[in-house]
Design a protein around this nucleic acid. Sequence first.
RNA 1: CUGGGUGUGGCGCAGUUGGUAGCGCGCUACCUUGGGGUGGUAGAGGCCGCAAGUUCAAGUCUUGUCACUCAGACCA
Length: 479
Amino acid sequence: MANDKKFVEQITSMEEDFAKWYTDIVKKADLIDYSSVKGCMIIRPYGYAIWENIQKILDARFKESGVENVYMPMFIPESLLTKEKEHVEGFAPEVAWVTHGGSERLTERLCVRPTSETLFCEHFANIIKSYRDLPMVYNQWCSVVRWEKTTRPFLRSREFLWQEGHTMHRTAKEAEARTVQMLNLYADFFEQDLGMPVVRGQKTEKEKFAGAKATYTVEALMHDGKALQGGTSHNFGTGFSEAFGIQFLDSDNTLKYPHETSWVVSTRIIGGIIMTHGDDSGLVLPPAVAPIQVVVIPVQMHKAGVLEAAQKIADTLKEAGIRVKLDDSDQLPGWKFSEYEMKGVPLRVEIGPRDLQENKCVIVRRDNREKSFISLDTLVESVQGGLEALRQAIYEKALKNREERTFTATTMEELVEIASTKSGYIRAMWCGDLACELKLKEEADVSSRCIPFGGQPVGTTCVCCGREAKKLVLWGKAY
RNA sequence: CUGGGUGUGGCGCAGUUGGUAGCGCGCUACCUUGGGGUGGUAGAGGCCGCAAGUUCAAGUCUUGUCACUCAGACCA
């Protein structure tokens, strides 16, 4: 039953204006509302449910890997924040300060946490005494505040939700292993659950986290060819330990500094989901995090038996552990189709009088709108199969987009040419010098996204200066 | 922070040489329709972002300010 009718236009098309398309979706899919404080957004039930699903999946995996959840205060005294030099320099420009309690001026101003390394470190210094106290593998789910100049829902807001893991280890080797372990955990989550292909790699000195020894990243490519850092995992070495005087007595009876790691994902990944999978009809949600995985829409629901049949379908799916919603509101079916497409519900089940007689229903996939008529006897299998097929299809589509948008440059002219005419990743060799990185920014307006793990060299000399190069870097424009 | 755009019922907009606010969608009720936003009837809803100024009179002119938004710089 081919359907070539025009679909209702309710949002700006991607082609026309990607940024406007994005904000249209965020609003029309009921994910957020703006608040009276610039850059602070209200995450509405549908948007928050996505975050809750993300939390549920990640939290379970964290705990499987030995993570314990804690909660740290939201205020950091100025003296504490400034203990690690690189760290404070990285964050000072964008922290919000509390200067008064009631009407009284505080003797020391407090910053609203932009991140909690310093708080964790202060605490670790108090509780770590012996090698027997290690490793310490903590995480917290909270919000942080960064006074950004320009803001965009999910992508850059002044307050945002995240998780921040902070761990302390006896040896450098163990800390490095944890850093990589968490990076891989994120990568699996992105690829398997969110259907977002990622590149695992290391950040350059310039792009790494303030105070870190090494920063690893999973980089995703959005539909418009801009990169988004999905998750990040840092190895701090002993830098913070030394700054905060965290020491433990090792089994050889000498005092040592523990090795620290930190790893983060934020609500920004919701923006990533939108910009990876969405289309001109709205959101497309990966089943793993979709608040509603299947919507059941009765057609001619006042005819005998229709609503009952729809209810039975919903009940059957719910029993099978599928998140299902029956929409028996008095909106017209066509209206409902558009509504749930905007909200990115992966599968739609239609049931009407015609299907009843034949013990059938219609399943429609959100990503390609393919309709199939299925027997009610195999409903659960068909729906599960449909969800799985969609999961794979959106991953493949995103992967194809990335492949089509990954270019290679061996000369500066080539790189500038690509950067000015195309949008995506540019693979190019780099000597490791900051000057060349800055020059690429200057001349091609690209930044280094990461040094991919196992990246195959595309040459032997730096694309910028011509000196010997060993590292392949993915360059691009980022959110 | 720099530069551009926009602020008028919930949303999208109109509003002429200054004369005291209108349209579409949505919302409410009823009818109708129902496999891609059905059609109709009757309603509710506005200190025109905020503050000064000019004027007999300001949505309209002036200045300031705030917010949203886009493009940069910066960051998850």
